Amino acid sequence: MDKLANDIELMARQLPPITLKEMSGIRLMNRTDQKYLTNVPTLKRLLELTRGSYYAQEIDGQRVSPYATTYWDDLQTLGMFRQHETGRAPRQKVRVRTYLNSDITFLEVKKKDNHGKTSKSRVQVPSLEAVMHEGAGDDFLAEKTGLHLCDLGPAVGNRFNRITLVNYDKTERLTIDFGIQFYNYATENRASMNNIVVIELKRDGRCPSPILPILRQLRIKPAGFSKYCIGASVTDPDLRINRFKKRLVKIRKVAEA
């Protein structure tokens, strides 16, 4: 664990733990999702302010969980990237995600419909390599998308660390991602966003939220952040990124604040 992850681990340990089993009982029936963007110093202040209101998810004695994800696309057209870049809906993404602490891997399909609702389905696979070289999960992919793995290829990979917070009333869940790193399979370029933090708030819209006043106090504002699209944009200098130019400027300002 690097120094930043260790620092966040220690701060998350100031919150009482909640287990995966306890998390599975949380049902947000009228859920709303919103992403926020901030930096590491502000994250540390946020974690201090959540004491007394939030649990921190603990898995195998750890509060920080490392993830590795690879996004797949049509490598000739980058059609899934283009769907997002042009704001098209409905749209979908295909990814392989590994939970590095447990070495468990899933092939996942995320879809967003015309109403902005996001759904995710997944199937466990042996590894990223098994998807790349053995076609693991192809039947699942065909069922969910009508595509086959031979139609796609690995486009952008990332690694990041995540902590997950749950409020005491169990009406909202925050995933907090930091230490984000990207790798582009086509250009072989790498990029890091070590000072950027992506917060995703999933909450029952009918219930009071203890995090919203904290976000306002710290001037953390809503902001979209697609790890695939941002990762592609910062690792491929020839990519058309019109829709993401302003977002990249904002990300830079947040990182430097």
Results as ranks from 00 to 15, higher is better:
Asn114Trp: 03
Leu75Gln: 11
Leu248Cys: 07
Leu165Tyr: 05
Val64Ala: 01
Ile180Asn: 04
Gly116Trp: 11
Met29Cys: 09
Phe106Gly: 01
Tyr168Glu: 09
Gly116Thr: 07
Ile176Tyr: 01
Lys202Trp: 00
Ala68Lys: 14
Lys35Glu: 12
Met1Phe: 12
Val94Glu: 08
Tyr36Ile: 00
Leu212His: 14
Leu49Arg: 13
Ala155Phe: 14
Phe140Met: 05
Asn39Glu: 03
Thr175Ile: 03
Asp169Trp: 15
Met80Asp: 09
Asp169Glu: 15
Ala136Tyr: 03
Asp74Asn: 15
Gln14Leu: 12
Val166Asn: 03
Arg88Gly: 14
Leu46Val: 08
Asn6Lys: 15
Leu75Ile: 14
Arg219Gly: 11
Leu100Gly: 10
Tyr36Glu: 12
Gly231Met: 06
Lys246Gln: 13
Val198Ile: 14
Leu37Asp: 02
Pro154Tyr: 05
Thr98Tyr: 07
Asp177His: 00
Pro126Arg: 07
Met23Ile: 02
Ser209Lys: 09
Glu22Gly: 12
Thr164Met: 02
Ala5Thr: 02
Arg240Tyr: 14
Ser53Trp: 06
Asn242Cys: 02
Asp33Pro: 08
Ile230Met: 03
Asn6Val: 15
Asp33Arg: 10
Asp113His: 03
Lys3Cys: 04
Glu134Ile: 00
Arg63Leu: 07
Ala142Gln: 12
Ala56Tyr: 07
Arg91Lys: 03
Lys170Ala: 08
Arg206Gly: 09
His115Gly: 15
Asn30Thr: 11
Asn242Ala: 06
Asp139Gln: 15
Pro17Leu: 03
Glu143Leu: 09
Glu256Pro: 02
Glu22Thr: 04
Phe81Tyr: 15
Pro17Ala: 06
Arg91Ala: 00
Asp236Met: 08
Met11Ile: 14
Ile199Cys: 05
